[in-house]
């Protein structure tokens, strides 16, 4: 069961801006600037960062909703960066995504039953009885019963919608699931329910998760390994506990200090300013304008990623 299931190498995604002047080339939003990581089969890999750091872009690029500008994506050892047509359709059965906007990911004009049968129909299941049976059997996975089948999304609560969203992803029996902020729109009490449900499903169906979130607390609870993103780059990557106990990058330290309660003893680090404009990232280390441990070298030289201990890498000049 071990081995690498998904690997991303130097993934780059730039969005061109609209051309406003005829002779000047338009700027581009640098959403991903060379992101690399590998996820082992059966693990939960967390991708954390603030809004606009490119974590959702990363998820959407991996599931091929977006074309990467550069870099490679490997799934089960095969290059899937540019696949199309039937092979892409086959891949859809193995990689699925749970969307950030729970309510928006369900078609408001369709019943739950229709929404759940659509993936099966899209994958070529024609037999209506078979579709019906698959759906009825799978409802139990997310602790819902058949009474939900004839409801419309607006008749469901936030937690129920998310369960349907999760089931929509699971119904094709994928191996790898990208969970893009799966609980950020939910009440805290429901968050725990959904996270536990996802953990149980992982055990039962031997799933691998790429868990995307802005909430380091949630990610720490849920994931085995965590990568911290800032402005389209991974600044630190480590085992969840290691990252929690021994954060190296100043940005990770500030994120951890923001988790309420647990680190009450330590000083809360409040960053100055906003995240920089991704169309015009700063020179040198992308974090230096907000960094509280800024040095002279940070303003002109990009730090390289170094391994500080086994499986713990960080990109910061503090660790040469």
């Amino acid at each position: 069961m071990s081995g690498i299931i998904l690997e991303v190498r130097d993934l780059v995604k730039h969005y061109p801006l609209r051309r406003t002047k005829l002779l000047e080339s338009p700027g581009r939003v640098r959403a991903l600037n060379g992101v690399s990581f590998a996820i082992a089969r059966g693990e939960s890999f967390g991708l954390v960062g603030e809004s606009g750091c490119g974590k959702t872009t990363a998820g959407h690029t991996i599931i091929k909703l977006l074309e990467p500008t550069d870099g490679k994506i490997f799934f089960e050892g095969k290059d899937i960066t540019t696949i199309k047509g039937e092979r892409l359709k086959d891949l859809r059965r193995k990689i699925q995504i749970i969307f950030q906007d729970t309510a928006g990911s369900l078609n408001p004009r369709k019943t739950v039953k229709w929404i759940l049968s659509e993936p099966l129909r899209a994958q070529g299941v024609r037999n209506r009885l078979e579709i019906e049976r698959t759906i009825r059997e799978s409802l139990e996975l997310v602790d819902l019963d058949e009474s939900f089948l004839d409801r419309y999304p607006h008749e469901l609560s936030g937690g129920q919608k998310q369960r349907i969203g999760i089931l929509g992803a699971l119904i094709l029996e994928p191996e790898f699931i990208i969970a893009d902020e799966p609980v950020s729109a939910l009440d805290v009490s429901i968050q725990a329910q959904i996270l536990n449900l996802m953990k149980n499903l992982q055990k039962r169906l031997s799933l691998t998760y790429l868990f995307i979130s802005h909430d380091l607390g949630v990610v720490h609870f849920f994931c085995d390994r965590i990568a911290v993103m800032y402005l389209g780059e991974i600044v630190e990557m480590a085992e969840a506990t290691e990252l929690y106990v021994n954060p190296c990058h100043p940005y990770t330290q500030s994120l951890l200090s923001a988790i309420p309660g647990e680190n009450a003893a330590s000083q809360r680090i409040i960053l100055q300013g906003d995240a920089p404009d991704p169309t015009n990232p700063p020179q040198g280390c992308p974090f230096h304008p907000r960094c509280f441990k800024r040095m002279e070298i940070c303003t002109h030289t990009r730090p390289r990623s170094v391994e500080v201990s086994k499986g713990h890498s960080v990109g910061c000049h503090l660790y040469p």
Binding site: R92, F99, Q100, S105, E118, Q123
Partner: peptide, 10 residues
């Protein structure tokens, strides 16, 4: 997202 969701399902 419901459209993206449909695309992702193939």
């Amino acid at each position: 997202e419901y459209v993206k969701n449909a695309r992702v399902k193939g």
